[in-house]
Amino acid sequence: MYQTTYHRPSSVDEAVALFGKSSEAKFLAGGQTLLPVMKQRLAAPSDVIDLGKIKELQGVELSGDVLTIKAGTTYFDIMQNADVKKAIPAIAYLTSVLGDPAVRYRGTIGGSIANNDPAADYPAALLALGATVKTNKRSISAEDFFQGLFTTALEDGEIITAVSFPVPAKAGYEKMRHPASRFALTAVFVAQTKSGEIRVAATGASQSGVMRVGAIEAALKANWSPSALDNVSIPASGLLADIHGTAEYRANLVKVMAQRAVAAAG
């Protein structure tokens, strides 16, 4: 690791001010990506601003049909939270298959979506549920927030404060775990909103990061059942291919995971 200066602000405003004063600062959330990258000397921030002790970034609130998860809430706390389990159990399930226990104790939802790894779990949930990302400056729809591999709508120094999820009528998540990293080799989140809209998002599949899957949404709109997807064919073009999965295999997984997610959603 290169030399860096560590800061631990106690408020979002203080964190933003610190960022403004540094040349090459990075916000540190759970550190499950940034710290390994720094240890490998692949990142060299002049300053690391730890958001982990900011109280206003912690917690879960359920208000009517909106579940709000503060950005600094750890995976473990999300997975255990009674409101999450009650309102959107698919999010609790997604979190339980994210990484391993050590990752879940430290990683946060804000850190995950800010990093926008193309195989991360949460982006699929946000996109399928039509979530809103709240920052210290504005609200951003999930569609607008995720902008491709490791790219988001966040501006320099902008901090995610929370994610608001409209509580769906039904939702389900199924994941084929990457055998080495335990990210998603491909995973699919399916949701039926209370207004009847069908939204399906796949992660780990596309070369452009998390994506909506229109063909599956259309089939499920006609018939919300796993068998409705039997004749759907997902094209392999534009999908990721590596030593753990060909593009054709990932195309198959998009369909199979979607079918199983629908079954899980009920």
Binding site: P179, L185, H244, G245, T246, E248, Y249, N252
Partner: peptide, 8 residues
């Protein structure tokens, strides 16, 4: 025998 290889 990875899942991908078995599936293919």
């Amino acid at each position: 025998a990875t899942p991908d290889r078995v599936w293919r």
